[in-house]
Amino acid sequence: IDAAQIVDEALEQGITLFVVNNRLQYETSRDSIPTELLNKWKQHKQELIDFLNQLD
């Protein structure tokens, strides 16, 4: 699994991931984030931050 897949998966569930001051953040209108997704974010945090920083 790679960062792009995780970002896409989040988007499919209505969650936008982004980076502020090198910290992973998210925006969503959902009430809660699925635990499975949160765990993936934690496991791949640095990859996600690097990936999202490249997009900007």
Rank of each mutant, 00 (worst) to 15 (best):
I1K: 07
I1M: 12
I1C: 12
D2E: 10
D2P: 08
D2I: 14
D2G: 09
D2R: 13
A3W: 07
A3F: 10
A4E: 07
A4T: 04
I6Q: 02
V7H: 04
V7E: 01
V7Y: 13
V7D: 01
D8S: 15
D8C: 15
D8L: 15
E9C: 05
E9D: 06
E9W: 05
A10V: 02
A10H: 01
A10L: 03
A10K: 01
A10S: 04
L11R: 14
L11Y: 10
L11Q: 13
L11I: 07
E12Y: 08
E12T: 10
E12W: 08
E12A: 14
E12D: 08
E12M: 12
Q13T: 04
Q13V: 06
Q13S: 07
Q13G: 05
G14Y: 04
G14Q: 05
G14M: 04
G14E: 04
I15P: 00
I15K: 01
I15Q: 00
I15L: 02
T16A: 06
T16I: 15
T16Y: 15
T16K: 15
L17K: 00
L17C: 05
F18E: 05
F18G: 06
F18I: 14
F18T: 12
F18P: 02
F18H: 12
F18V: 13
F18N: 07
F18M: 11
V19T: 06
V19S: 04
V19Q: 03
V19N: 02
V19E: 03
V20T: 07
V20D: 08
N21G: 11
N21Y: 05
N21F: 06
N22I: 10
N22S: 06
R23S: 15
R23D: 15
R23H: 14
R23P: 01
R23F: 11
L24G: 01
L24A: 00
L24R: 00
L24F: 03
L24Q: 00
L24N: 00
L24S: 01
Q25V: 14
Q25C: 15
Y26A: 06
Y26Q: 02
Y26P: 02
E27M: 12
E27C: 15
E27L: 14
T28M: 04
T28K: 03
S29A: 12
S29K: 13
S29W: 08
S29V: 09
S29Y: 09
R30I: 07
R30S: 07
D31A: 11
D31N: 10
S32L: 07
S32P: 11
I33H: 02
I33E: 02
I33R: 01
I33C: 04
P34W: 02
T35M: 13
T35S: 10
E36G: 07
E36Q: 08
E36A: 10
E36H: 11
E36F: 08
E36N: 09
E36W: 09
L37V: 04
L37A: 03
N39R: 11
N39T: 10
N39L: 13
N39K: 11
N39C: 09
K40N: 04
K40S: 04
K40R: 08
W41S: 01
W41P: 00
W41L: 13
W41M: 12
K42Q: 13
K42F: 14
K42E: 14
K42R: 12
Q43V: 10
H44Q: 03
K45C: 15
Q46K: 11
Q46N: 11
Q46H: 08
E47W: 05
E47D: 08
E47M: 13
L48T: 01
L48D: 00
L48Y: 01
L48W: 01
I49D: 00
I49W: 02
I49N: 01
D50F: 09
D50Q: 10
F51V: 02
F51H: 06
F51C: 02
F51P: 00
L52S: 00
L52F: 08
N53M: 13
N53Y: 08
N53P: 03
Q54G: 13
Q54C: 09
Q54H: 11
L55C: 09
L55R: 15
L55A: 10
L55T: 10
L55Q: 12
